[in-house]
């Protein structure tokens, strides 16, 4: 006759703990690992825009970032930006410089492309269209979501690289050429891969697509 052995209290606690641990592992693997889980993905087709011709849709790993461009503020810079967007030049380009909750930078068309990523030179590449003059005379306020063209230490060296700030940066005013502002999806950019100890990103996130609405 087989004797039925009852589990002791401590054995029950260990069993419950193991079940909890297993659940936690599954939860962590499938849920927490998904960095985009709680990020809202805006659909441009569901939004009415006042100036649809100046709306650009940047699609990144966690969804869409909807940017309004300001040709009245920086006509030449916006013209260059639109030219590159319309030619799909920004597709598969890395966010090579990311500072947590501060800024994301991308647009190195020479050394930042997914298929030809060059960690040694990324951030120094050109578009092949030449540089353009800085347009910094307007009273543009660099608040969170502002999009500007990156440059070297010298003015008039803007090309294809751009940055989007994730917090207000009043010192950028009059320093960098503004091209627009994120109107939806700033939280999507906060999920772009960053590193705690460096601005330069190893195995970075890439732009999926960057298109004009119209």
């Amino acid at each position: 006759m087989i004797k039925k052995i009852k589990a002791s209290t401590s054995e029950k606690i260990i069993f419950i703990f193991l079940i909890f641990l297993g659940s936690l592992t599954i939860f962590s693997y499938f849920v927490i690992k998904n960095k985009c889980l709680f990020v809202k993905n805006y659909k441009p087709e569901n939004i009415n825009f006042q100036n649809p011709e100046n709306i650009a849709i940047l699609n990144v790993p966690c969804g869409n970032v909807i940017i309004e461009l300001y040709p009245n503020i920086s006509p030449n810079a916006v013209k260059r930006f639109k030219t590159l967007i319309l030619s799909n030049a920004y597709e598969d380009v890395a966010f090579h410089r990311v500072i947590e909750n501060k800024l994301v930078q991308s647009g190195d068309l020479e050394f930042g492309k997914k298929e030809s990523l060059n960690y040694a030179k990324i951030g120094t590449g050109k578009s092949g269209l030449g540089t353009i003059k800085s347009e910094t005379d307007s009273d543009f306020r660099y608040v969170a979501g502002s999009v500007g063209l990156a440059r070297t230490f010298h003015n008039d060296t803007e090309d294809s690289q751009f940055f989007i700030i994730l917090q207000d940066e009043p010192l950028f005013e009059g320093e960098y050429t503004p091209v627009g502002k994120v109107i939806y999806g700033l939280e999507v950019l906060k999920k772009i891969k960053h590193q705690r100890h460096s601005e330069n990103i190893l195995r970075p996130d890439f732009i999926n697509s960057f298109k004009m609405l119209k």
């Binding site: 500072i99 947590e100 501060k102 010192l171 950028f172 320093e175 705690r196 100890h197 601005e199």
Partner: peptide, 13 residues
Amino acid sequence: LISPLKANTIYNL
């Protein structure tokens, strides 16, 4: 390794 990156806008400028 334990020091997080601190962006310094003034220094960058």
